[in-house]
Simulated assay, not measured.
Amino acid sequence: MSDDAIKAHADPVIPIVDGIVAKLRAHAAGPDAALTCDDLLAMVGHQSHVLAIMIFALLNLLPGPPGYNSLMGVAMFVISIAMLRRRPMRFAQWFGRLRLPIWVIRKLLDVLATIIGWAARLSAPRWRALVGAHAMPAIAVIGVVLGLVNISPIPFMNIVPSTGLAIICLGVLNQDGAAVVLGSALGALGATLSILAIWVILALLLSVGDMV
């Protein structure tokens, strides 16, 4: 679909996500179905920072082996820094070679289908002052902060901030300022919960240390 057609669409995010879904389905049907982080960036486009952040935020909601969620947090942080600096996205060589297995790709396809349904029913272009070009540095800073929060290895602490960041990105892509506000509130809640969890763990460790 052309850029003009996307802009004219009632929900601009739908054709954008449709394009990624088509690429993922084609990749999943190939002989080498595993997907590397570099492959994913190539599909998204090295200048499509908001879409890439949303994809990795959604990936962070999927279960994975130990350390998986922290790596997704690193990806969000790196992409947000590139967005803040207005540079093309690029991962370090070792990170770019990390492989996402086929079941992750299939789960991501399911999540993206849900996103399309949600956008069609609940989201629409509105409050565009919050999603214009002038707002992108602030969105990038939020991505940096929530990316750092998601690097935390504490179990389940990634769910709220990743959901918030995904909703923010969806709002930007769909020109929906209300979604940006909702996502920012969830992101702030997630960051607060993570900081409190870290504080409690540190306090417990110090207490145990004093007792020993």
Rank of each mutant, 00 (worst) to 15 (best):
L108R: 04
S162E: 05
A178F: 09
G143R: 07
R126N: 15
F77W: 10
I53W: 03
L59Q: 00
W127C: 10
F91D: 01
L173T: 04
M89L: 11
L108V: 07
V21S: 11
L196Q: 08
A124K: 13
L165K: 03
L112Q: 06
T114H: 11
R90F: 09
I116H: 03
I6W: 01
I198F: 03
T192K: 04
Y68H: 15
L146A: 03
N174P: 04
V212G: 12
W94S: 15
P125T: 05
A113V: 04
H49I: 07
L24D: 03
P125A: 06
M76N: 09
P65N: 10
N60Q: 10
M72P: 02
S48W: 00
V149W: 01
R85W: 05
D176G: 02
P88W: 09
V145Y: 02
D4S: 13
S194Y: 02
R97V: 08
L100F: 13
P125G: 08
P65D: 13
M136N: 04
L173D: 00
P161E: 07
D11P: 00
A120K: 08
S184D: 00
A191Q: 01
M1L: 07
I198M: 09
A135N: 04
A140F: 01
D110K: 12
L205G: 13
L196A: 15
G96T: 09
D210I: 09
L112M: 12
L193H: 02
T114D: 13
L24Y: 03
D38F: 06
A119Q: 01
F95G: 10
P125F: 06
R25H: 06
K23R: 14
V131K: 02
